[in-house]
Amino acid sequence: METVTENQKVKVAKKIKKMFGHIDVRNAEYCPIRDVMALASDKWSILIILYLGYYPVLRFNKLKKYVYGISGKVLSERLKMLEADGYISRTMYPEVPVRVEYGLTGFGHSYLLKLLDLTEWITAYSDTVIKNRKKFKKP
């Protein structure tokens, strides 16, 4: 596997300092990173965005089927939050019964690209994580 060089560590440290350097941790009631990441990194939101990246348009029941284990209530809440933050669009058609479709916005696609980087990393290192978990559980 790859090793992290000292140069990479320095670059990462600079990025993190730039990210957090302006925040007064004694009075950090609002942290924009934490606020945005709370929804954007939620396991259900990530799966919703990934499936909407694969299927350009999905209806509620199809999303519920693909995002295995999510309840209808939680799916509805996440869709509303993702729409409010601008990741997805909701299109309602005046038919009987009403048809509602969800899709990614341009902003959602830009986030999807970052998620794909993360999922590629997860795919490459999932065996390592599983091995580490097994070693950790041993007495």
Rank of each mutant, 00 (worst) to 15 (best):
A38S: 01
S76L: 05
G103T: 11
I16L: 13
L116G: 09
A40F: 04
T91K: 13
E83V: 05
V67H: 13
A28H: 06
A84W: 01
V129P: 06
V57E: 04
L75K: 10
G21V: 09
V4F: 00
V98S: 11
Y93A: 03
F107R: 13
L58N: 08
L79C: 09
D85K: 04
I46A: 02
A40T: 08
E95R: 12
P56T: 11
L104H: 07
S76V: 03
A13R: 10
C31A: 03
V25Y: 11
C31V: 13
K73W: 11
A38L: 12
M37P: 14
S45P: 12
S45V: 00
P94R: 12
T105F: 13
T105Y: 13
L52D: 06
V74N: 14
C31N: 09
I70W: 00
L113D: 08
F60W: 03
K134Q: 04
V25T: 12
I48M: 00
H22I: 07
K17P: 02
K64W: 00
E29L: 07
D42K: 13
I23Q: 05
T119D: 00
D35A: 14
T119M: 01
E83H: 12
K138T: 11
S71D: 08
T91R: 12
D85T: 08
L47W: 13
K62W: 06
I49D: 01
Y51F: 07
L50I: 05
A124E: 15
Y30R: 09
N61Y: 03
Q8E: 06
K80A: 10
L58D: 09
Y55C: 08
L113F: 08
L39H: 10
R59P: 11
K80S: 07
V36W: 03
G106L: 10
L104G: 01
L75G: 14
D42Y: 02
K135S: 04
S45M: 12
D24M: 13
G86I: 11
A40V: 05
K65L: 11
D42N: 05
L52R: 14
R133V: 08
W121P: 00
W121I: 00
T3E: 01
Y102D: 01
M1S: 06
K62I: 09
A40K: 12
E29F: 00
K138H: 06
M37F: 03
E6I: 15
V57W: 15
M92I: 06
W121T: 01
K17E: 02
Y55M: 08
E6A: 14
L75S: 02
R78C: 02
L50P: 12
K17F: 02
L118E: 01
L118Y: 04
I48F: 13
K137Q: 04
K131A: 05
M37G: 02
K11P: 01
K80W: 05
L58M: 09
S126R: 00
E95M: 02
E95L: 05
